[in-house]
């Protein structure tokens, strides 16, 4: 039995289906869960969505998501102010932060250069990064864009435009993921991991 397409329930399912990773069946299950849940529980979700849309913006300095003018990382004086790690999207920043292995600052480009799609430097927040370098406190920029054509294009471009600022520019290493068998690695990853080997 299908849901009436004019009903309020169908409207909710239609909105849930728009979310990434949510198909028709999952949306239907979520909608029925919300229908059965306590009124307060369902409204809390609605209020959280509204609050996030109204209260969350981009950090003026690093373009990470923030609840004020600056994000939590830019406001933290304990972080290493001489290092900036550049990522394409905020989700990458939080993945790196979860690892606990980096204590410097970040810069989020909110995109990547793409010669295939004609996305150029003006379409990403590269100029904001250069403006930060002009302040003179930065000693090293770590480029952590994805190892895709777009990420590589961005890394090459940033390396070129940051050269005049005299800061150390490094790229995150390429290689075999931890726990993987080397025999299953593809050719490009193997070559890059040999090129990027380090002394023991």
């Amino acid at each position: 039995m299908g849901v009436d397409q004019q009903s309020l329930l169908f409207r909710l399912i239609r909105e849930l289906v728009r979310l990434p990773g949510i198909g028709q069946k999952t949306a239907q299950r979520l909608a029925f869960h919300l229908l059965k849940a306590e009124r307060e529980e369902a409204l809390r979700l609605a209020e959280a969505i509204q609050a996030v849309k109204e209260g969350v913006t981009f950090c003026r300095r690093c373009r990470n998501i923030a609840e004020g003018e600056l994000c939590e990382f830019c406001l933290d004086p304990k972080r290493d102010q001489t290092k900036i790690l550049v990522v394409e999207e905020p989700s990458t920043l939080y993945a790196i932060e979860r690892s606990g292995g980096y204590r410097g600052l970040y810069h989020v480009l909110l995109g990547a250069l793409s010669p295939l799609d004609g996305i150029g430097p003006a379409d990403i927040h590269a100029q904001d990064l250069l403006d930060r370098l002009k302040e003179g406190e930065t000693q090293e920029v770590i480029v952590a864009t994805n190892p895709t054509i777009e990420g590589e294009a961005t890394a090459i471009y940033l390396t070129k435009v940051m050269k005049p600022y005299g800061v150390r520019v490094s790229r995150i290493a390429y290689g075999i993921p931890v726990g993987m068998d080397i025999e299953y690695a593809d050719e490009v990853t193997l070559i890059k991991s040999i090129e990027g080997r380090r002394d023991l």
């Binding site: 010669p115 295939l116 090459i156 593809d186 050719e187 070559i191």
Partner: peptide, 24 residues
Amino acid sequence: DIRETFPQLREDLALMSAAARMVN
């Protein structure tokens, strides 16, 4: 299974843009 990767096309923006035009 990879046969050729054309590695230089990933290391130079001019070559990358030219290759992008070809595939586009």
